[in-house]
Simulated assay, not measured.
Amino acid sequence: MFQIIGLLVVFGMVFGGFALAGGHFDVIIKAAPFEMMMIGGAGVGSFLISNSMGTIKGAMAGFGKALSGSKWKAKDYSDLLSLLFVLTKTMKTKGVVAIEPHIENPKESNIFQTYPKILKDHFATDLICDTLRMMTMNLDDPHQVEDAIEKQIEKHHNEAHAASHAVQNLADAFPALGIVAAVLGIIKTMGAISQPPEYLGKLIGSALVGTFLGIFIAYGIVGPFAARMAEVLDEEGQFYKIIKDVLVSHLHGNAAQISVELGRGSIPTSCQPSFAQLEEALNSAPQV
Results as ranks from 00 to 15, higher is better:
1 M>V: 10
2 F>L: 15
2 F>D: 14
5 I>Q: 14
5 I>K: 13
6 G>Y: 11
7 L>Q: 13
8 L>M: 12
8 L>P: 08
13 M>C: 06
13 M>R: 05
13 M>I: 12
18 F>R: 03
19 A>H: 12
22 G>T: 01
23 G>Q: 08
25 F>T: 12
27 V>Q: 04
31 A>E: 07
36 M>N: 10
39 I>T: 05
40 G>R: 00
42 A>Q: 12
42 A>C: 10
44 V>W: 01
44 V>D: 00
45 G>T: 11
49 I>M: 15
50 S>A: 15
51 N>M: 02
51 N>V: 02
53 M>C: 13
57 K>S: 08
60 M>P: 07
61 A>W: 10
63 F>Y: 10
64 G>W: 14
74 A>E: 10
75 K>Q: 15
75 K>Y: 06
75 K>V: 12
77 Y>K: 00
79 D>M: 07
80 L>M: 11
83 L>Q: 02
83 L>E: 03
86 V>M: 02
86 V>S: 04
92 K>N: 14
93 T>C: 02
93 T>P: 05
94 K>H: 09
97 V>H: 05
97 V>R: 14
99 I>G: 04
100 E>H: 05
101 P>L: 02
101 P>R: 00
102 H>S: 09
109 S>M: 11
109 S>H: 01
116 P>S: 06
117 K>N: 07
120 K>N: 10
122 H>Y: 14
123 F>A: 09
124 A>C: 04
128 I>Q: 05
129 C>S: 08
138 N>L: 09
139 L>Q: 10
140 D>N: 12
141 D>G: 04
145 V>A: 05
145 V>E: 10
150 E>L: 11
151 K>R: 13
154 E>C: 09
156 H>V: 03
159 E>G: 03
159 E>A: 11
161 H>I: 10
164 S>W: 02
165 H>M: 11
165 H>A: 15
168 Q>V: 03
170 L>D: 03
174 F>M: 14
176 A>N: 14
176 A>G: 13
178 G>W: 03
178 G>V: 04
180 V>W: 05
187 I>K: 03
190 M>A: 11
190 M>C: 04
192 A>F: 13
193 I>W: 06
194 S>P: 09
198 E>V: 13
199 Y>R: 10
200 L>E: 02
201 G>R: 09
203 L>H: 06
204 I>W: 07
205 G>H: 07
206 S>G: 15
208 L>S: 08
209 V>N: 02
209 V>H: 03
210 G>D: 12
210 G>I: 04
213 L>T: 04
214 G>W: 09
215 I>S: 12
216 F>N: 04
217 I>P: 04
229 M>C: 08
231 E>T: 08
234 D>L: 13
236 E>P: 01
237 G>R: 03
240 Y>I: 05
243 I>V: 12
246 V>R: 00
251 L>R: 00
253 G>R: 00
255 A>V: 07
257 Q>T: 15
257 Q>M: 15
258 I>G: 00
258 I>Q: 05
258 I>C: 03
263 G>C: 00
263 G>F: 00
264 R>D: 00
264 R>F: 08
265 G>Q: 13
269 T>Y: 09
271 C>G: 03
272 Q>R: 12
275 F>Y: 15
279 E>T: 15
280 E>P: 01
281 A>F: 04
281 A>Y: 04
283 N>L: 13
285 A>M: 06
285 A>F: 06
